[in-house]
């Protein structure tokens, strides 16, 4: 099992859920921003100091810190670029 914090640039992943230990406030914000099961996500940009990372999701760019991204479970899609 992988989480979004481990995604590499160039890989595409599909979200499989938000981890149970994610604090309620963060969970709600992530859901509101569209980090829901079945959504495809990709790394668009990494900030100069390596954190945060901007993800492309639902055709928009949302930046998250790695520690918050690690609450998001993903499955890496091997077939795509």
């Amino acid at each position: 099992m992988k989480h979004l914090g481990l995604l590499q640039k160039g890989e595409t992943a599909v979200i499989s859920g938000i981890l149970h230990n994610c604090p309620a406030e963060i969970r709600q914000r992530l859901l509101d921003l569209g980090f829901v099961k079945g959504t495809r996500v990709r790394i668009e940009n990494i900030s100069p100091l390596k954190d945060p990372v901007a993800y492309r999701i639902h055709h928009t760019q949302i930046s998250l810190r790695r520690e918050d991204a690690s609450y998001i479970e993903i499955e890496i899609n091997e077939n795509e670029e």
């Binding site: 406030e25 963060i26 914000r29 992530l30 921003l33 940009n45 945060p52 901007a54 928009t60 760019q61 949302i62 930046s63 998250l64 810190r65 918050d68």
Partner: peptide, 8 residues
């Protein structure tokens, strides 16, 4: 605390 920001 946590940080989310949309890059328009």
């Amino acid at each position: 605390s946590f940080f989310t920001l949309e890059l328009p």
